[in-house]
Design a protein around this nucleic acid. Structure first.
Length: 444
RNA sequence: GUGCCUAUGGUGUAAUGGCAGCACUAGACUCUGUGGCAGUCUCGGCACGGGUUCGAAUCCCGUUAGGCACCCCA
């Protein structure tokens, strides 16, 4: 079985006195049945990447802490409270990546990707790590799949393209009741002004709002709009809306994004309280939710424009927009919506041996079939013909190839059609052609 | 990090202080060269640690894990 990348934890020194060996909290083994769901999602991601012409990029699981402290922001929960630090020789500031966008921006700068092409369309997927309290759809090791457009001009059509990709991703996975929420959080010109307006609006209400919000009021007043605390919800209604206060640049950018989405017939709702917790976002931000079954897990996918990120990481200001989906959240929702579990493609033939001599020759026969492109399976360790047939049936194989003493002596083999119970003996030399002939017939 | 709820074979469940049972799955046989059905049988469990009690899956405490609401996010 394919191992999870290379990030296996080795903290067995701290074994509890019970001495149990298990996965660390919030981290899970991915068992074969789970891989069927994952591979389905991976294939949709690859398909969309290919279709919209995004190129794959992978960055290391470990990064210097600076990448996230400067990129995501050291005041954010992700960086401040949730990062895993790695103790190792010499390199004392390595962390396990909590998200994928900042490392990609780092790679973009490190390899001067902006020089080889003015516009880079990149996608990735991989494990992310956050030290959080686990819940449904929320783990300490989880996987993101993301799409990023870096460079070019800051044309709102790219915002729309990114949103389009995630819309299609959810559709292709047959996820129902998708809700897309969009907002703009402005730029360096209009955001400070808006923050001041918010602060003055809340000034006389400071004693009535919750303790968290009192703190937020000074550091990041826009977070107040996101607060679900009863004492604060009431004030949101009449709070000044950023929507009306955007500068003309941001305002027209957002309007154009809407126009593109209208053109694509993608429905969305404007949500003034959508703020997002990472420092690098500006202008367009979006999140996809699902209503009904599975809705408890929060945003399935989120993203936005991050024109300042490259600059925050020491490069020059570069327009960029992107987003990510949580693979485990997708799986949770698909299961909650009772979507059919992906099935493994059954093998074409099942090789059945009868007796010792046939068993000895069976591996060679299987090799012959495989090299001819005929997928084959077997139960080599089982010697009973009945058991082998039962397993062939259970696996959903179309044809069984049966051979024993008699067949070896006659240089023949039996081809049994498991669907109509008919079987026929053919010369061993012609087995590949005979099998192919029957498989073609079955497809029609 | 805070509060609340939950924990019985691999999976899903029953047993309300008195013999841990059922279904599915897996394996064997009925049937030692012919599958799906059926019948019979087998493997396999009270998350862990302590306490109360003649007696604990059941009551109490702790631990661990999971879920939910905060917080935050994908």
């Amino acid at each position: 079985m394919a191992p999870k990348k290379g990030e296996k934890q080795k903290n067995n020194k701290k074994e509890s006195s019970a001495g149990e060996l298990r996965t660390p909290k919030g981290m899970h083994d991915i068992l074969p049945s789970e891989w069927l769901w994952r591979e389905k999602i991976y294939s949709v991601i690859s398909e969309l990447a290919d279709f919209y012409n995004f190129n794959r990029i992978d960055t290391p699981i470990l990064e210097y802490a600076t990448v996230f402290e400067r990129g995501v922001g050291s005041d954010t929960d992700i960086v401040n409270k949730e990062m895993y630090f790695v103790r190792s020789k010499g390199e004392d500031s390595l962390v396990m990546r909590p998200e994928g966008t900042a490392p990609i921006a780092r790679a973009y700068l490190e390899h001067h990707l902006g020089r080889s092409a003015s516009l880079q369309k990149l996608f990735y997927r991989g494990a992310m790590f956050r030290h959080e309290r686990p819940q449904a759809g929320r783990f300490r090791q989880f996987e993101h799949g993301g799409f990023e457009v870096i460079g070019g001009n800051n044309d709102p059509i790219y915002d729309a393209e990114i949103i389009l990709i995630f819309q299609r991703l959810l559709e292709k996975l047959k996820i129902k009741n998708i809700v897309l929420k969009i907002n703009s959080i402005g730029c360096r010109v209009c955001r400070p002004l808006y923050k001041k307006q918010l602060q003055s609006y809340y000034k006389d209400k400071e004693k009535k709002i919750c303790a968290d919000c009192q703190r937020r009021l000074k550091i990041n007043p826009m977070r107040l709009l996101d607060c679900k605390n009863e004492s604060c919800v009431g004030f949101k209604e009449s709070a000044p809306s950023f929507f009306d206060k955007l500068c003309s640049n941001c305002s027209s950018h957002l309007k154009e994004v809407f126009e593109y989405l209208d053109e694509l017939k993608i429905s969305y709702s404007i949500d003034h309280t959508l703020v997002r917790g990472l420092d690098y976002y500006s202008k367009t931000v979006f999140e996809f939710f699902v209503e009904g079954a599975g809705s408890e897990i929060g945003a399935l996918s989120g993203g936005g424009r991050y024109d300042y990120l490259l600059e925050m990481l020491g490069g020059r200001m570069t327009p960029a927009v992107g987003g990510a989906v949580g693979i485990e959240r997708l799986i949770t929702v698909m299961k909650a919506q009772e979507l059919e579990a992906p099935k493994k493609q059954p093998k074409k033939v099942f090789v059945i041996h009868v007796g010792e001599l046939a068993k000895k020759k069976s591996l060679n026969l299987i090799e012959k079939l495989r090299s001819a492109g005929i997928s084959a399976t077997e139960a080599l360790g089982r010697d009973s013909l009945k058991v082998q047939l039962r397993l062939a049936d259970k696996e959903g194989v179309k044809l069984a190839l049966i051979f024993g003493q008699k067949e070896i002596f006659e240089k023949s083999i039996i081809i049994r059609d498991l669907e109509n119970h008919l079987q026929e003996s053919v010369p061993m030399d012609t087995i590949v052609e005979e099998v192919k002939k029957r498989l073609v017939r079955k497809k029609q």
